[in-house]
Amino acid sequence: MLVINQNEVAELLAMESCISVMESVLKALSAGQAVQSLRQVLPLQKSNLLGLMPGYLQHEEVAGAKIISVFPSNHGSGLPSHQGLVTLFDSSTGVLKAIVDGQKITAIRTAAVSAAATRYLAREDAEILALLGTGEQAKSHLEAMLRVRPIREIKVWSRKLAKAQDFQIEMSQKYDVQIIVAETVQAAVSAADIICTVTASTEPVLKGEWLKPGVHINAVGACRPNDRELDSETVQLAKLYVDRLESAQNESGDYLIPLNEGKITADHIVGEIGELISGTIEGRRSAADITLFKGLGLAIEDLAAANFIYHEAVRLHKGTEIAF
């Protein structure tokens, strides 16, 4: 069995590679070539939780699960909000092949899925990006968006101005792109071509009245039925795409709350990103369309990323071999 740590995951899973892996596995899922169960969630104290996410990639002959803790209460403590691991089994023999750090996989693959959605939904000339949030996902989404669109300006917002300023300094040293701190969400998004909501908020931070025609939104922060980052008007105005229909119908407050309010109907979801990538559903029709990708994070995404990392580790003689 190979144990692959966080630093090795970061080394082996480049963003560009991960975007390609995510596109392939989302197509496979929508085509019925990958199987997963809804995540099982065990509530803990202070709105924290422990999640179990199993999946099976038939074409790769691997199965496994991510076990992850989600601790929003860690924000400001210096500890990450998401921590865990991904197990990788040979589906033909049952042999445990690898245990892979899950925190870094989550950070990279979440942004890579948003990048895949952006590649197929955002306007080709999208150049202004708004980031709502300044944590690890904001950093990875910044990198991912730069991979798929000609971003020239980034506006970043955080509830704490100092965090946005720190983000601006750190990311300006890493990327040759203008980064501006916005004091309000409205100031961040009013001119944006792409908006990524990557907050830990349980209440709406983005309002539909602030959106300009043609904007594309990636909403990935909220992942429980009662939590949301978007107000109902935002969802109502947008053509809505999801990573998995079953997951959205059971786990997404951004979808379920406006649905229960009667602001949208069940057919408001156009379809899954995997269907869009394969060409079985339509995407943007005009430059004025507002498009929305709601990502919840899927077991098969973690499994596909871990499988890619495992093969890279074997090829490059990385990881630690342990008798098990």
Rank of each mutant, 00 (worst) to 15 (best):
I179P: 00
T197Q: 03
F167L: 07
L303Y: 04
S172Y: 07
Q186D: 14
W210M: 06
D176V: 09
N5S: 10
S77K: 05
I273M: 03
R315F: 08
P80N: 07
V62R: 02
E282G: 15
G94Q: 10
S92L: 13
E60V: 06
S247E: 07
A28W: 04
R147F: 11
L26E: 02
Y56W: 15
I273S: 00
Q186K: 14
S201E: 06
E229A: 07
T234R: 05
E272S: 03
P80G: 04
V100G: 00
I281Y: 06
S140P: 04
A287L: 14
I154S: 02
F324C: 12
D166F: 09
Q6W: 02
S114E: 06
F167P: 01
G102Y: 00
N5I: 11
A144R: 11
D101S: 11
C196N: 07
L57P: 01
V3W: 05
Q6G: 11
H317F: 10
S92N: 14
T106D: 03
G55P: 02
K239D: 13
A323I: 14
P258M: 06
D101F: 01
K294W: 01
V86W: 00
V148C: 05
V148E: 02
E261N: 14
D302N: 10
R315D: 14
L146R: 05
V270T: 15
T291A: 01
L42D: 06
I128T: 12
A313P: 01
Q173F: 07
V9L: 03
P213L: 12
V185G: 02
Q173G: 15
M145P: 02
G253Y: 04
Q236V: 07
R224N: 11
L245W: 05
E170W: 05
G274L: 06
E272D: 07
M1G: 09
D227Y: 14
A305D: 01
Y120M: 11
L44M: 14
F89L: 13
G76H: 12
G84N: 03
S17Y: 05
C196M: 11
K104E: 14
L50I: 12
T202C: 08
S190P: 05
E261I: 08
I108A: 03
A130L: 09
P72G: 07
S172T: 14
E312Q: 15
Q33L: 13
Y175F: 15
E246K: 10
T118N: 06
F293W: 11
V95M: 09
A107Y: 03
G262C: 11
G319K: 00
D176Q: 13
T202W: 04
K212F: 10
A182C: 08
I19M: 06
L2Q: 08
Q186V: 11
A63Q: 08
V205G: 00
K160P: 05
A188Q: 00
V41T: 15
C18K: 01
A138L: 07
S172I: 09
A305R: 02
G253A: 09
G64N: 05
L88W: 01
S190G: 05
K294T: 08
V220Y: 04
R228K: 11
P258E: 06
Q6N: 13
S30H: 08
D125P: 09
M1T: 14
E153K: 15
